[in-house]
Design a protein around this nucleic acid. Structure first.
Length: 539
RNA sequence: GAUCGCGUAGCUCAGUUGGCAGAGCAACCGCCUUUUAAGCGGUAGGUCCUGGGUUCGAGUCCCAGCGCGAUCACCA
């Protein structure tokens, strides 16, 4: 054997050891540890379910009899399975090796006996590394201790692991490494695949729900020359041959409304949007929303739609939690309409109907006077040290106070629609006929998170132009760099948009609530990370 | 951006009043046909995040920086 180069240490030495093993396997046994197509693989969970007690007993008895009397025949009617998985535990006991494999469905033990396979296979099995990907085949039986186990008579390595895997009991807990090397996190922490499987099921359910309701799914541009529909800072990019500045979209709202103008009665888009803002437990720069628009609906149409959708998703999550029984992450109780789901410190009650509270009532409840009393609002602004309390527009000040005191006062355990928003902070919403200071808009709050918003859409081009112009006038120097009046949108309204209800929901936050994950990074496969620093280059 | 916490072997973590750098797992060699985080014997593995300072002596104390996390602010 080659002497290990003296300069290698740590990670390099560990990889070197595995490369040497790989070379030995090729040279000594003629095996190729990077395998190829294998058909008819049974998942580990399905293979476990094949276990047949009677067949096992019959086999065990006849094998014991055959030991006493060499003439007796061994009866083996145990079901057979071909499985594949990554080695996550390895216990070699001389002439018998126990290996625990893991796949996307779960874990299963296999055992390789020296007597049952050819010599190369046994050598591979006994020298297998944690992290290697294996194909094995044999009868499904059990061990003396009762563990269901495949007694392999075929054993192959189909991918060699060269990178030392995380510690097998504690797994990978370092949050940064979990996100940077998600492919390791996924096999080290089975919850990760469960969460993203649930995410997929939720999105699929949203699509079938919207289809049932007669909505058409559409795709609109992610790269736009004007980033409209929200007030966030956009990411800026550039098209080379057209020498043109482009923005990544910050909302899907304005293109979708153009589709209402064009004559699509019900449209929705599920897609990624991009906001150049801070990163924290509930914000990732790119995230997924659903926006839906229904001609001749209003914000109450959207309320019913949203409440139904979320209630169905909660039922789906409830069933899933019951199936998985992953009590450390998730506990859910109830049946039918009675759905309580734990999320962090909270227990969210998804029973219908959700709560409805008027914005103004919440304000008055917190401050003891109506939000329309300008002098008292100004005084409250000073008292609660709102930034620029002296000069801020009345309604912006109301909203600052609302967000500081009223929003946190909403019961986090009860999904709550806050309705009747001030028009002044809702530039795309139609003012109420009998009280234009308020508008038909709601926001949905669950567990302290804003889950979404909906409007009765403003379809009067003149009022819309006035509101957008007003908003632009209030923009500071930095904002003016990326805010432009979308004249074509105004033109579309001039062509005529039917009255409509529109709604937007944050898919990632919904997935958080339904899976019990309290960090948005745990429901986004590859959350945005700073590049890893290389000390030689920085500084 | 502010505050707090953390940064020690591939992973998970100890490290006392400032006094020789530690454990378990993983790796390597050996033994073992029913293990369950297998066990037993042996070997190897360290820029204690980086830079400065105090000190006879710093993983430990001080300063600055970097990275990560949490909370807050920002995000209609």
């Amino acid at each position: 054997m080659n002497a290990e180069p003296a300069h290698e240490h740590g990670l390099e030495a560990l990889e070197h050891a595995r490369r040497e093993k790989l070379a030995r396997w090729r040279a000594d046994y003629g095996v190729e540890p990077y395998g190829q197509r294998v058909d008819d693989i049974t998942s580990l969970t399905d293979a476990r379910a094949l276990y047949n007690e009677a067949a096992h007993e019959e086999y065990a008895a006849s094998a014991a009899a055959a030991k006493e009397n060499p003439d007796a025949t061994v009866v083996d009617n145990r079901p057979r399975a071909r499985v594949a998985g990554r080695c996550i535990q390895h216990r070699a006991m001389g002439k018998l090796v126990f290996i625990v494999l893991r796949d996307h469905t779960g874990d299963l033990q296999i055992s390789v006996s020296k007597a049952a396979v050819d010599q190369p296979s046994f050598k591979l099995a006994s020298k297998l590394d944690y992290g290697d990907i294996v194909v094995a085949e044999g009868p499904v039986g059990r061990t003396n201790k009762g563990e269901i186990c495949i007694w392999a008579d075929r054993f192959e390595v189909h991918a060699k692991n060269l990178v030392p895997p995380p510690e097998k009991f504690h797994g990978l807990t370092d949050a940064e490494l979990r996100y940077r090397q998600r492919y390791i996190d996924m096999f080290a922490n089975p919850q990760t695949i469960r969460t993203f499987t649930m995410r997929s099921k939720i999105i699929m359910h949203v699509r079938t729900f919207m289809e049932r309701r007669g909505y058409l799914e559409v795709e609109t541009p992610m790269m736009q020359s004007i980033a409209g529909g929200a007030a966030a800072r956009p990411f800026i990019t550039h098209h080379n041959t057209l020498d043109m500045q482009l923005f990544m979209r910050i909302a899907t709202e304005l293109p979708l409304k153009r589709l209402l103008v064009g004559g699509m009665p019900r449209v929705y888009e599920i897609g990624r949007i991009f906001r150049n803002e801070g990163v924290d437990r509930t914000h990732n720069p790119e995230f997924t929303t659903i926006e839906a628009y229904q001609a001749f609906g209003d914000c109450w149409t959207m309320l019913e739609l949203t409440e139904s959708l979320l209630h169905e998703l909660a039922q789906l999550a409830f069933q899933q939690a019951a199936l998985e029984a992953a009590p450390e992450k998730r506990s859910a109780e109830g049946a039918g309409n009675n759905l309580h789901m734990q999320w962090g410190e909270h227990t969210v009650n998804w029973s219908r109907p959700f709560a409805r509270r008027k914005y103004g009532d919440l304000f008055e409840q917190s401050f003891g006077f109506p939000m329309t009393e300008r002098d008292r609002v100004r005084a409250a602004g000073r008292e609660h040290r709102i930034e620029k309390a002296e000069t801020l527009d009345h309604w912006l000040l109301v909203n600052a106070l609302y967000e500081k005191l009223c929003e946190p006062a909403i019961d986090p355990n009860t999904p709550t629609f806050v309705t009747d928003y001030p028009s002044a902070i809702s530039p795309l919403t139609r003012p109420q006929r009998d009280n234009p200071e308020l508008c038909d808009r709601w926001e949905l709050l669950v567990a302290g998170m804003e889950l979404g918003t909906a409007y009765s859409e403003l379809n009067d081009p003149d009022i819309q132009l006035e509101k957008l112009t007003q908003q632009l006038a209030g923009a500071d120097e930095e904002e003016q760099a990326f805010r432009t009046l979308d004249e074509d949108f105004i033109n579309a309204l001039k062509v005529g948009m039917p009255p409509a209800g529109g709604m937007g929901l944050g898919i990632d936050r919904i997935v958080m609530l339904m899976t019990g994950e309290t960090t948005i990074r745990d429901v986004i496969l590859f959350p945005l990370m700073k590049p890893e620093s290389h000390d030689e280059q920085s500084q």
